[in-house]
Design a protein around this nucleic acid. Sequence first.
DNA 1: GAAAACAGCACTAAAATAGTCCCACATTTC
DNA 2: GAAATGTGGGACTATTTTAGTGCTGTTTTC
Lengths: 155, 155
Amino acid sequence: MLRISKLTDYATVILGLLAADPDRQQTAAEIAEHTQVAAPTVSKVLKQLQRSQLVTSSRGLHGGYRLARPAREISAAAILDALEGPVALTACSGEHSHCDIEGTCSVGGAWQRVNRAIRQSLQEVTLADLAGLDAGSTHFAVFDVKLRNGLHEAR
Amino acid sequence: MLRISKLTDYATVILGLLAADPDRQQTAAEIAEHTQVAAPTVSKVLKQLQRSQLVTSSRGLHGGYRLARPAREISAAAILDALEGPVALTACSGEHSHCDIEGTCSVGGAWQRVNRAIRQSLQEVTLADLAGLDAGSTHFAVFDVKLRNGLHEAR
DNA sequence: GAAAACAGCACTAAAATAGTCCCACATTTC
DNA sequence: GAAATGTGGGACTATTTTAGTGCTGTTTTC
């Protein structure tokens, strides 16, 4: 239920690695080696993270990536947004959209409220929490995301 | 992000219809007609809901479906569980699972906490809320579920 | 015993996701 | 200024997941 994609999973791992050593700039290849994620995939993820301003990059010899801001200021919601798109709600949730079944449905609005609630939870979780830095601060409520076939596969 | 499947979307609409008239037993064909969902699909969804004890069915002539219990006692989490599987976390979340990258990762546990939080939100939302019955009780927090290509498609 | 309606299963098709590759552009070093 | 190193972007392919359909069996009522 409510699964998050593999790429998002990778992203958290990659960001976690960067967060562990925020001053050092790391190349995509180094990150791939440390995380065991295939290099092209790491690149892809990093590019997306760069576009969303979660990491900064520098090109050229001795280039690489690093966190754009402290781990504590990066929310789980921001990571999801970066990887899974702008989260424009495609459906009923849109401003002026209409259902084919408006009459009998009446369900639409509630999902949006649910949606907003979960989103709020996600905003309160930071990369620092996810990466296990900042040990004392796990005051946020939490739940069950299906991470299937991901890095976190059982072996 | 965090999308729910079309079938789950259908399920809420179907359950909403049943909830609107809890005393009457309705056939799959009737439900299909009212909801504009294709009949075989309605059947499929209802079967799954039956297996999860959210609706009761009776066979034979004059058979049909009805809610197994009041709308207020059916949580959104239960609906998701029914449609999207037993939500056994396939990953790190399992009891004795290990990551290939245990050393560098450290992200695993936090997702489970996030997961539990969202799940809790979902448990506080009932079918009555979703169906818009029970007008006063929308005290639950809420968020952004991507319902794409579903019944709720904009037209 | 015939008709109506659910139950279960398997199969097909379509769509989303994940992953890979290639080439262009930017820096730095020599 | 040329070469090496590394990111940037896009296109393409393959895999997986999801959605949808059809068929056969079982139960109940009349």
